[in-house]
């Protein structure tokens, strides 16, 4: 068993399935079990791909059809 911090709350979690895990690593937890260590490099890479996506046609992209609540302050 190990202690896993979920953004500020801590729970005992079974780490038996992720023997490679070390303090400071991120993991996916399901019903009290760590199932997979998060590959942080891959996560960053994915986010980077999203950020770079459509950079070329950004200027000519269609306007967003998103409404927001009018702030009354």
């Amino acid at each position: 068993m190990g202690r896993v911090n979920f953004g500020g709350i801590v729970k005992d979690v079974c780490l038996a399935y992720v023997p490679e895990i070390a303090v400071g690593d991120y993991t996916i937890v399901h019903v009290g079990f760590a199932l997979s260590k998060i590959d942080e490099e891959s996560a960053q890479k994915t986010l980077e791909t999203f950020r770079e996506m459509g950079l070329l046609d950004e200027e000519f992209g269609e306007p967003e059809a998103v409404e927001t609540v009018k702030e009354t302050t």
Partner: peptide
């Protein structure tokens, strides 16, 4: 929470939606 919050970003969601369209 790290690696969750980043994957909820509204702006990036709009980008992906545009790509899909």
């Amino acid at each position: 929470m790290k690696y969750l919050t980043e994957f909820r970003d509204g702006e990036l969601a709009s980008k992906l939606a545009r790509e899909i369209r």
